[in-house]
Design a protein around this nucleic acid. Structure first.
Length: 770
DNA sequence: CCCGTCGTTATTTTT
DNA sequence: TAACGACGGG
C-alpha cells in the first residue's frame, strides 16, 4: 500500500499537466517518441510517467531510465522519488553507467575484463595508444583516438571495417589498440556501450534474461544518442517492452561525439507502430526570450520543425552589451549581478554565466575573485584531470587490477624512484604480459552471470609470482628493490581492502567511516601525500588540499572492494564535479553551454558572442555551423526571467589580442526583439583598473615541522577549530605505524579526514576532554 | 636519470 | 600568455 502522501503528490502532478503532457504520461503499449521543445516539461513528463507506471502496477525495478549526463540522472531520480518513493528501486542511470553496471554484472574471464576493471579516460587511452605506437607523435595519436572512438560510436569493430569504409585507414591501428586494451583488463568509454551490446547479441540467454528484467525503458535527450546506443537499445527491447524516448532535434549538440539525429528521424521505421507526441508549450522562459531563441533557430535547414509557444508573462527584452575587451566583459557581468542583487534582492545562485569554451572561464574567475563574488565553475579544470588526483587514482586502480598498464606506467616513478623510460619499458613488458599465452579475444564470446566470485588464488602467491618476475628483469639492483617495495605496498593495501585478517601488524583499522580511511591510507603508503606535499612547498600549489578533497569524497562509499570499484567508477563517469569558491551555496554558476543542457536559471548571461569564438569556425562546414546555432538556441532557452548577451571588440585569443567581429547569430535576431548597449568607446579604457596583485592570496599553509607526536596530539574527542569549517570534534582516529589519520565532525555537519602533518596546519586544538 | 631552460603552440564542446 | 614538450647539462 502506497502512502497517501505519495498518492497525492502524483495526483497533484497529474492535474498540473496540459493535455499533451498527460497523453504522454498515460500512453502505453506502443513505442512512443516524444518531441519536446526546450522548457516544455520533459523531465516532468518522464518522472511523472515513472511514478504513474508504478502506480498502475509495474514493478519499480522493471523500469529502466537512461539519460546522458549524471546531473540529469540525479535530477530524474530525485524527482521521481518525490512523486513515488518506490521509484528508488528503478534503474535510473546514464547510458555509460548502465553499461558499466551491465558489464560488472555479467563479468566473465572470457571478456578479458578484470573483475574490478576501471574505465580509461581519453588521456589514458592516448597513453595506451602511444605504447602501441611508440614512434608516433602525440597529435597524430590524439586524432587516431578520436577516430577510433567515432568508429565505436558507429558500432563498428575493427573486423567490420571494409575497404570502402571511411575508417579503413585506421582499421589496423584500431585492431591493435583494442587488443592492447583487452590485455589491460580495462575498458574505454566506447566499450561501455559496445561490449554490452555485443554481449547481448551473442548470448541469447542473457538477452532473454535482461529483456525479461526490464519491461519499461525510458530514454531522455534521445537526440544525443549515437548508433551504438541505438543498437544497445534495440537489444534491450523485446516486443513486449514498452519503450519511450524523449528528444528535441533542435537541441542536438553532440554530433562531434558521434550523436546521430537519424535516431530520431528513423525511430518510427525501427520501432513499428510508434506514436509521436509533440510538446511545444514552453513553461520556462518569458515570451521575449523565446522570440529571440525562435528567430535564431529558424535559420537552420532540416529541422523537424516546431516553434516554442510562450506561456509566461512578459518581461524586458534581452539586452546585448558590446564591450571593449574581456576585462570590460567581466566588469559588465559583475555590475549586472551586483546591482540586481542590491536592487531586487535576488541571489547569486540565480545567475549563470555561459561560454563556448572552458578557457573563457579564467578571466571571469579572476575578476570575480577580486570583486568578491562567490561563484562555482562547472567542469573546466576537471577535478579528476589534475595531476595529483590522476596519480592517486592510478595507484588505487592498480590495487584493483594489476594488469592496468597505463596506471602502472603513470605511477611507478611517482614519487621519483629513479625509474626512467628505459626501465619502465622493461618492467611493463615483463610485468604486464598476460598470464596465459592465449591470444586475447577482442570480442567477448561468452558471458555468464557473475554470481560466484571465484575465490582467486592466494594473494601471497600472487605477490611471490610478481617478485619472482621482477628478479628476472635486467634492471639495476636499486630499481629492483624499489619496484619490489612498490608491489609490496600494492599487495599490502589489497589485503587490507579484502580484510584478510591474517596480517598482524601495528594496524588497528576500525573498518568504519566508509572508504575514506582506505584512500587516505593508500595515499600515505604510496608516499603520494608526502610527495605532493613537498611539491606544494616548491611550486606553491594546492595539490594537498585536492588530495584531501579526494579522501573526503570517498566517505560515502563502502570500505570494500566493491566500494572502491564504485568510487573509481564515479570518478571516471561523473566528470562535471564543480569547483566551488568560498564554500558557499549561494554562488554564481560559470558553465559551458554544453554543460547547461537540461538546466535552467533565472538570469542568464551569454558571453563571447563573437565570430570564431561563438560560433567557433575552424574549418567548419554548414553542418558545423548549424550545430553551433543549435548551441546558441540551447543557451538562450536556459533563461527564465532575463537574458543578457555580451560581445567584445578585442579579445585575447590564441595568445594574441585580436579584433573581433560580432557573432553572426546577433544579426539573425530581428532588430526589434532585443536592445543593444554599445559601450565600446575608446574612453572605456580609462575606467579600467587592473588587479594583478600577485600577493592577493594568503599562503594557505604555514606548515609545521616535526613529524612526530601526532599520536598524542590528535586524540578522539578533542575539540578543534578550522578556519574553513569552524568548530568540530575528532570522532575517530586510525593508526598505521608512525602515521595517524583522523576524522573530524564539524558543527556544520561536515565530515573531513585529516592526515597530519600534511593538512592539519589550519586546524587548531581548542580543548581536550580529559 | 633528473631537472631546468628554451621554444613552440594553443581554444572547441564531454560521456 | 601560459602551459607543455623537446633538449641538454649535471
Amino acid at each position: 500500500m502506497k502512502s497517501e502522501k505519495n498518492m497525492s503528490n502524483l495526483e497533484y502532478a497529474l492535474t498540473s499537466l496540459n493535455k499533451e503532457q498527460l497523453d504522454a504520461v498515460t500512453h502505453f503499449n506502443a513505442p512512443l517518441l516524444i518531441l519536446a521543445g526546450a522548457g516544455a516539461g520533459k523531465t516532468k513528463v518522464i518522472t511523472t510517467k515513472i511514478a504513474y507506471l508504478i502506480e498502475k502496477g509495474i514493478e519499480p525495478y522493471k523500469i529502466l531510465a537512461v539519460t546522458f549526463t549524471n546531473k540529469a540522472a540525479e535530477e530524474m531520480k530525485t524527482r521521481a522519488i518525490k512523486l513515488n518513493e518506490a521509484s528508488a528501486e528503478s534503474t535510473i542511470r546514464t547510458f555509460h553507467s548502465f553499461g558499466a553496471w551491465f558489464l560488472r554484472r555479467f563479468y566473465s574471464d572470457n571478456t578479458m575484463l578484470s573483475r574490478g576493471f576501471s574505465i580509461y579516460d581519453d588521456s589514458d587511452c592516448i597513453t595506451l595508444l602511444s605504447s602501441c605506437f611508440p614512434s608516433t607523435n602525440k597529435l597524430t595519436l590524439k586524432q587516431l583516438y578520436k577516430r577510433i572512438s567515432r568508429a565505436k560510436d558507429d558500432f563498428l569493430l575493427p573486423e567490420d571495417i571494409s575497404a570502402d569504409s571511411e575508417y579503413f585507414d585506421i582499421k589496423d591501428s584500431y585492431q591493435k589498440y583494442q587488443i592492447k586494451l583487452r590485455e589491460t583488463g580495462n575498458v574505454d568509454f566506447g566499450d561501455l556501450i559496445l561490449l554490452p551490446t555485443l554481449c547481448l547479441k551473442q548470448n541469447p540467454d542473457i538477452k532473454k534474461y535482461i529483456q525479461n528484467y526490464f519491461s519499461v525503458i525510458l530514454v531522455d535527450e534521445f537526440q544525443d544518442s549515437n548508433i551504438a546506443q541505438m543498437e544497445l537499445l534495440k537489444e534491450l527491447t523485446a516486443d513486449k517492452t514498452y519503450l519511450c524516448v524523449v528528444g528535441d532535434d533542435d537541441q542536438s549538440i553532440y554530433k562531434f561525439r558521434g550523436a546521430s539525429v537519424s535516431n530520431i528521424l528513423s525511430f518510427q521505421d525501427i520501432f513499428n507502430n510508434a506514436d509521436i507526441i509533440k510538446l511545444e508549450k514552453n513553461y520556462r522562459s518569458t515570451p521575449q526570450i523565446l522570440h529571440v531563441a525562435n528567430s535564431i533557430i529558424k535559420n537552420n535547414e532540416g529541422r523537424l520543425g516546431k516553434e516554442l509557444k510562450p506561456t509566461q508573462p512578459d518581461n524586458i527584452k534581452p539586452i546585448l552589451f558590446i564591450e571593449e575587451n574581456q576585462t570590460m566583459e567581466a566588469e559588465r557581468i559583475i555590475s549586472l549581478i551586483s546591482t540586481d542583487i542590491k536592487e531586487n534582492k535576488t541571489h547569486f545562485s540565480d545567475w549563470a554565466i555561459l561560454y563556448r569554451t572552458n578557457s573563457q572561464s579564467r578571466n571571469l574567475e579572476t575578476s570575480f575573485l577580486n570583486a568578491g563574488i562567490p561563484y562555482k565553475v562547472i567542469g573546466s579544470l576537471r577535478f579528476y584531470e589534475r595531476e595529483e588526483i590522476k596519480d592517486s587514482i592510478a595507484f588505487l586502480k592498480l590495487i584493483l587490477n594489476l594488469k592496468d598498464e597505463v596506471s602502472f606506467v603513470r605511477i611507478i616513478n611517482k614519487p621519483p624512484r629513479g625509474i626512467g623510460e628505459v626501465s619502465k619499458q622493461k618492467l611493463t613488458s615483463i610485468l604486464m604480459e598476460t598470464s596465459s599465452s592465449t591470444t586475447p579475444t577482442v570480442v567477448p564470446l561468452e558471458l555468464h552471470f557473475n554470481e560466484d566470485k571465484n575465490s582467486d588464488t592466494d594473494i601471497d602467491d600472487k605477490l611471490e609470482t610478481v617478485l619472482k618476475k621482477i628478479s628476472k628483469i635486467s634492471v639495476s639492483k636499486k630499481i629492483k628493490t624499489e619496484t619490489e617495495i612498490f608491489f609490496k605496498q600494492i599487495f599490502f593495501l589489497r589485503k587490507i581492502l579484502e580484510k584478510k585478517e591474517s596480517i598482524e601488524t601495528s594496524i588497528t583499522l576500525q573498518y568504519s567511516s566508509g572508504l575514506s580511511f582506505f584512500v587516505a591510507l593508500a595515499l600515505e603508503v604510496s608516499e603520494l601525500v608526502n610527495y605532493h606535499h613537498t611539491q606544494d612547498e616548491i611550486l606553491n600549489t594546492q595539490k594537498l588540499s585536492n588530495l584531501q578533497e579526494l579522501v573526503n569524497m570517498a566517505i560515502n562509499y563502502e570500505f570494500s572492494e566493491d566500494g572502491l570499484v564504485s568510487f573509481l567508477e564515479m570518478l571516471s563517469l561523473d566528470t562535471n564535479i564543480s569547483v566551488t569558491q568560498n564554500n558557499s551555496n549561494d554562488a554564481v554558476t560559470l558553465i559551458t553551454i554544453h554543460g547547461t543542457k537540461g538546466l535552467e536559471f533565472n538570469q542568464v548571461i551569454i558571453t563571447g558572442l563573437e565570430e570564431n569564438v561563438f560560433p567557433i569556425t575552424r574549418n567548419s562546414t554548414t553542418e558545423d555551423i548549424e550545430e553551433e546555432r543549435r548551441l546558441m538556441y540551447v543557451a538562450c532557452t536556459r533563461a527564465r526571467d532575463r537574458l543578457f548577451m555580451i560581445s567584445v571588440r578585442m579579445r585575447m585569443w590564441e595568445g594574441r589580442a585580436s579584433t573581433m567581429d560580432l557573432s553572426r547569430f546577433i544579426y539573425e535576431i530581428e532588430k526589434d526583439l532585443f536592445i543593444v548597449k554599445d559601450n565600446s568607446t575608446a574612453n572605456a579604457f580609462s575606467k579600467k583598473e587592473y588587479h594583478t596583485n600577485e600577493n592577493f592570496f594568503p599562503k594557505m599553509y604555514s606548515l609545521e615541522k616535526g613529524y612526530t607526536q601526532h599520536h598524542s596530539k590528535w586524540k578522539k574527542d578533542t575539540v578543534v577549530y578550522s578556519d574553513e569549517y569552524g568548530y568540530g570534534r575528532i570522532t575517530k582516529c586510525e593508526y598505521c605505524n608512525e602515521d595517524i589519520t583522523f576524522e573530524v565532525m564539524f558543527e556544520s555537519k561536515e565530515r573531513k579526514i585529516y592526515f597530519p602533518p600534511y593538512n592539519t596546519a589550519s586546524l587548531e586544538i581548542v580543548s581536550t576532554d580529559e
